[in-house]
Design a protein around this nucleic acid. Structure first.
Ligand SMILES: [Mn+2]
Ligand SMILES: [Mn+2]
Ligand SMILES: [Zn+2]
Ligand SMILES: [Zn+2]
Lengths: 136, 136
DNA sequence: AATTTAAATAGAAATTTTTTTCATCTACAT
DNA sequence: ATGTAGATGAAAAAAATTTCTATTTAAATT
């Protein structure tokens, strides 16, 4: 948790109970979740809890690099823990059955500065699969 | 347009004026658009036009491989034309200023069957950049 | 420990986005 | 021409997200 606390502080943000709780939820389940999912789980822990706070914090934690934004086309936002202890550039592979997230190493895109005349600003890779557990 | 008509028919779907109009819009502007954008443009051409049809058709055309789904984290869906004349596997690079879409060749992911014990089902790559036009 | 202050929060309300339902219509195979 | 599965618009509903504001809080400073 100290690792995350430092990340938050390094970004000039406050370490609040809500933020620690959100990180704990992700740390505990290692699966990608929607704002609504988080909201539901936070309410078990906090009697008062606002959905706007959840939206704000998920975005803030993604901004800090603590959470990864997961893209799906079902009209929901997803976030997952970006467990990059070493800080090396990576992407994510997610299980379409259970939502488990694993790091995906070996990206050869982040070196390139230009493609097709486009100046590269960012890139996103996501692999969808079925994890060992869900395969049998 | 025949190219698209065939694709639609090959998927057992009907070639309707609405669908042709949507393809025309993308063919004409070569930029990624939201359902709302499309709806606005369709209304210029058709006096009656429903938003549900737009949502349905964008998804259907994406399913056929005619449109590409573009991911952004601004809580809107985006679609763009997937101009794959040769049908070769590819992804897309988009201009974050104007929305222009260009094909991105050379993906080495689609060959792999397994990563980290995950059985690979799908993968998605998107590069965000600034196009030639928008660079100056 | 008390004070200060900018940031974070809850809660309500508003807004935006997306889907459902259903009666009507149409593309296209027969 | 006719039949039929698929497509459509209108209206309504549902779901997702943001805005606003008064209140509270983390943490820096005394
Ligand atoms: Mn990660
Ligand atoms: Mn394409
Ligand atoms: Zn799994
Ligand atoms: Zn551009």
């Amino acid at each position: 948790m100290n690792f995350y606390v430092d990340k938050i502080k390094n970004n000039g943000l406050k370490v609040t109970p809500r933020r620690k709780a959100i990180i704990n939820i992700f740390n505990h389940c290692r699966v990608h979740l929607t704002p609504e999912d988080i909201f539901t789980r936070l309410k078990e822990e906090f009697s008062h809890c606002g959905l706007p706070s959840v939206y704000r914090n998920l975005e803030i934690l993604a901004e800090c690099g603590i959470l990864a934004r997961i893209y799906r086309f079902d009209n929901k936002r997803y976030y997952g823990l970006c467990h990059s202890a070493d800080g090396a550039h990576h992407h994510h592979i997610i299980c379409i059955k259970c939502g488990t997230i694993a790091p995906l190493k070996g990206c050869n895109l982040f070196k390139r500065k230009k493609i097709n005349g486009f100046k590269i600003i960012d890139h996103f890779i996501q692999v969808d699969g079925i994890c060992k557990n869900c395969q049998e």
